[in-house]
Every structure is written in structure tokens, then in C-alpha cells.
Design a protein around this nucleic acid. Sequence first.
DNA 1: TCTGGGGTCCTAGGACCC
DNA 2: TCTGGGGTCCTAGGACCC
Length: 402
Amino acid sequence: MERKILHIDVNNAFLSWTAINMLNNGEEIDIRNIPSIIGGDESKRRGIVLAKSPPAKKFGIVTGEPIYMARKKCPEIKIYPSNYKLYKYYSNKLYELFLEYTEYVERFSVDECFLDMTEFLMGRDIFDIAKEISSRIKEELGFTVNVGISSNKLLAKMASDFEKPDKIHTLYKNEIEQKMWNLPASELFMLGRKTIPKINKLGMKTIGDIAKADKNVLIKVFGKHGKQMWEYANGIDNSKVIYEYQQPKCIGNSVTLPFDIVNIEKLNEILLLLSEKVSFRLRKHNLIGNSISVQIKTKDFEVFSHQKKIDISTDQTKTIYEVSRSLLEKIHNGQKIRLIGVRVSNLSNKDECQMSIFDVAENKKQKKLDDVMDKIKDKYGYNSITRAGEINVRDIINIRED
DNA sequence: TCTGGGGTCCTAGGACCC
DNA sequence: TCTGGGGTCCTAGGACCC
């Protein structure tokens, strides 16, 4: 049976939500109507464009580019900081609204959802439902969305990416040739900047070219990815709308430093801060992991990583920190470090994990310390307490409260 | 006044086992 | 004597997404 899938995407999410928040706080200008962007902190070397207003887009400003580039394109551009708490708030509001229409809602990102409406049409036309959802969001929440309608997730997602903002598009199987095949290959979901030149080299420019290409040639050149791009170009996608909560596969934190650091002691202090944050989040999720990895990016943007499997899964700050330290020692050869990160993967649920009495390597003292710190963080905020070693670097890097 | 931070998935090569 | 072949696990790196 043909499914009915909606993909709903907030237009310029971070900027729209910031605009509404400002209006609610008495601001008179709607920053959606002037050249404006949401951007990171340039003084901390995090100055990239995270979202742009439609007038900013007219200047050719694109998401992900450095703010100084945006300023070059439009000197009068207004720049506003990001606010993840606010984004989470509106994301939840949106999700709650969708649940009124179907229980099958997949949160694809903070500003995108897939809805499987197949069993919840109640005899109504899917386009009418899309219109109702769209106008309710506008009236009740104050921002606009794009809605894509189709019989699978890929096509619904491609459809929502057509003309913006505040539009509803269909992309059914019989519309693929007319609506999708003439688009450049780069528009196809999962075709990124590294693959496009290779596709072009094979003489393919449009999505239609890929769709009509020999599938086996694509598989030969790109492996699994080749199979997927051929299927996507032909509108084939059998993936389900995943509406149940998915346990994360890894939890990591990384930070771009405000200036390059070579000193290993300083780097270790930052590692402690990151280990603290990662393990705190693991404990919040009731997860433990046994693969610990450290990533660095040098001043020349070279990326290196090392990882290590430990015998017993952990969520303890001290263990994660100590393994991270040894990993950093192996990668670091005196390079100037721009970014450093810690990640724990191979996660399992702490309660479901059956450990023999001999496996419980949990250091009781450490566990108590973690527990106490967590409680204080919960009560007074994440940054309310630090381990002694962290204090120096806390001024250098600024840990977000979210 | 150069280029974020959170993820997921895949691949290639080496170690090791039978 | 002159180097099997299948399988699993681990690691490093890379592509892609929002």
C-alpha cells in the first residue's frame, strides 16, 4: 500500500526562532525582514553563519561560510548569537503539534520532522492536512515551514527543499522526472561536495543523469554509496519513519579553541573539561560506553583521531579522562591545536548491562564524586562547579549550558 | 577579521583465529 | 617449502547530514 509521508522543515529555523523571541521581548524590528544572520563568536574563532534571513540570502550569503565573508557580501548585515535552549523550546512545540496528527513522528533534527500519515488520514486529503498544519504553525507558533508530500521519506524530503519559504510541494513517483531529474546532482540528498566532482567526471550533471546511469557502474565506483545514490535519484527509499526514541550511538564534545595551543598540560586540562561534560551526558542518559576516542584539528585543519577500547564500559569522568589523556599523548607531536574533542561510543544501557561482580571496576570514590557533582550541576547549573584542574581553562573555552 | 559542533555510517587495512 | 582463505574485531580516516 502506498504510504503518505510528510517532511516538515522550518524555514531559517535559528533565525526565525530568534526573531520571534526578540519580538516577544519588545523588539520592534522583525529580523527576518532585514539582512541578518545567526552566527558564532568571531573572537573565539567560531565565526560561521548558522542561519540567514531571506534578505541576507539575496546578498549571496550561505550557511556555513565565515562571517567575515558574509560581511564582505553585505556590510550592513546584522549578526545575532545562537541560543540552543530557545531552539529546543520551539522544536518541542512543533513536535507536540505534529503529535496531534499522527503518532508516527520522526525528529530528524531540531527543525525537521517526518510524519507518517498513512493510517491517520481519516478520509481527508493529504494536501489539506499539510495546509492545515502549515497554517496552524504560522498562527500558533509564529514561524513558517516548508512541507514536502510523497509516498516515501526521501521524496518528501526532496519536495520540502523546493521553493521556499512557506510552501507545500508534492513529489510523487510520477512527478520525479518533471520535478527532480532536471535538478543539479548536488541537490540530491547524501550527495556532498566530495562526491560531486567525481560524479561530474563520469559525465553526470543532473539527478536525472544519475537516475539513468548504469547502477552497476555506480556501485563499482562508489560501493554502497553508489547503490544508494542511484536509488535516491530514482525515488526509491523504503526506510521507515522512526518514531520511537533512539538511544544515541555515541556521545561526544569538542571545542574550537580561541587560539592555537601546543602546551600539553593546557590541552590535558581541556580534555578534563570535555571528559567531564561527556561523562555527565552519559550519566544523564543512563549510558555507559567502552570505546573512547580523542580528535584533534591542527591549525592547518588537519584532523587526527585515536581511539581505544576498554575492557569495561564506563560513565566515569576519571576513567574517560585518563584514557583520553593517553590517546592525546599518542597523537600529539607538538602540533598547534585548533580543536580538540572527546567521544565515547559503543554505548549500552547501564541497567541492562549485566556485569559480573568481578567486572565492576567502578571506583566507588569516583562514583560518589560524580554523583555529587551531577547533583550540584542539576541544581545550580552545569558551570556552577568545577574540578580544580579545570578552572584555568574554563576562561579560555566557554562551556555551553544546555 | 578565515573556516562550529552535534551526530551517523562506511571503508580499508592489520591482527588474530581456525 | 616459498606463503590459503574465511571470518571477526579493532583502529584511523573520511563522507555526509543538520
